[in-house]
């Protein structure tokens, strides 16, 4: 029972991170109908930037309580610039090109980002500095620590904020209009390019936060961390119904739970034949299963079919 509770907690924490990254995929998809393959690498860049900034600030004797938000803001700004740049360079010129073209440039962008990161930060794992006294709390035999609590609370706050932006503000209305019909939105006086750029920047800012959360939770950051994370967050977005904001959140949390429960119990279920090293495999099978049985995802209204 304690193991079960512990896996639920781990799943929720991991799921919140997936949800934040999945939001980035789903927002871009909703507006452009395009899968932003490079999004996982933006998360990685966010984590690396935050880590570098933190290390530098701590080195200058800035108090951790000030250094943490400062480095987060820095990473968000960096990622927003990056997201804007990616859209301008790799996607905007190809908006009317055959479908294959932006997918290929996206792959190009992620390879470039990954290798640049490797040149700048090296191949080794970077340890995340221990800033706050990471107090463990016991709940019914399971353990949750301060960082994990902060992650979940922050994720909930950010998601609520995003929902407010999209549904209550003028910008959000413009975003929804562009998603519905670009030409009609343009005729109504919406600056499409501006809205698309802002969408990319918003998604990238969320990615930076997610990057910091992941590295704080595991205590590590690495130039290759974006790849698997991006793949899983995409799965989460598809699971919830790609293009749907609530779907991305639900899909992220569900995927986190599936993964942690799966990894926790796969050994018992298969009589020790398969172990927790197959954790990364679950997301993939979830993806295949969703595509077979419910391609529109759990909350997707529109069918994903559009050749």
């Amino acid at each position: 029972m304690e193991i079960f509770l512990q896996q639920i907690i781990n799943g929720l924490v991991q799921g919140s991170v997936y949800a934040l990254v999945a939001l980035g995929y789903t927002m871009v998809y909703g507006i452009l109908g395009l899968i932003n393959f490079a999004h996982g690498e933006v998360v990685m860049v966010g984590a690396m930037l935050a880590l570098s900034a933190l290390t530098a600030l701590i080195g200058w004797d800035v108090s951790p309580l000030l250094a943490l938000p400062l480095s987060l803001i820095l990473a968000m700004a960096g990622c927003m610039a990056l997201g804007y740049g990616i859209e301008r360079v790799a996607y905007r010129p190809l908006r009317h090109a055959p479908r294959l073209a932006p997918l290929i440039t996206a792959i190009g962008v992620s390879i470039v980002l990954q290798n640049l990161a490797m040149m700048i930060w090296g191949r080794e794992y970077h340890a995340f500095p221990q800033l706050i006294n990471n107090q463990p709390h016991h709940i019914g035999g399971a353990i949750i620590n301060d960082i994990q609590i902060i992650i979940v609370i922050m994720a909930v706050m950010i998601m609520t904020g995003l929902m407010l932006v999209v549904h209550r503000t003028r910008l959000g209305r413009a975003m929804r209009a562009v998603a519905e019909n670009q030409h009609a939105a343009q005729l109504m006086g919406v600056d499409i390019n501006r809205v698309i750029s802002i969408t990319f920047m918003l998604g990238s800012a969320l990615a930076a936060i997610a990057g910091l959360m992941v590295s704080a939770n595991y205590g590590l950051a690495h130039y290759y961390m974006g790849f698997m994370l991006g793949l899983k967050a995409f799965t989460a977005a598809v699971l919830g119904g790609i293009g749907n904001l609530r779907g991305a959140m639900l899909g992220g949390l569900l995927l986190g739970l599936i993964e942690s429960l799966g990894a926790g119990y796969i050994g018992d279920l298969t009589g020790g034949f398969l172990g927790s090293q197959y954790q990364d495999v679950f997301a993939f099978f979830v993806l295949i299963a969703v595509l077979v049985f419910r391609p529109s995802g759990l909350l997707g209204e529109r069918l994903a079919e559009r050749a």
Partner: peptide, 10 residues
């Protein structure tokens, strides 16, 4: 049977 992007990810 879905869009090409899904194939890429899968």
């Amino acid at each position: 049977r879905l869009r090409g992007d899904y194939l890429a990810i899968v």
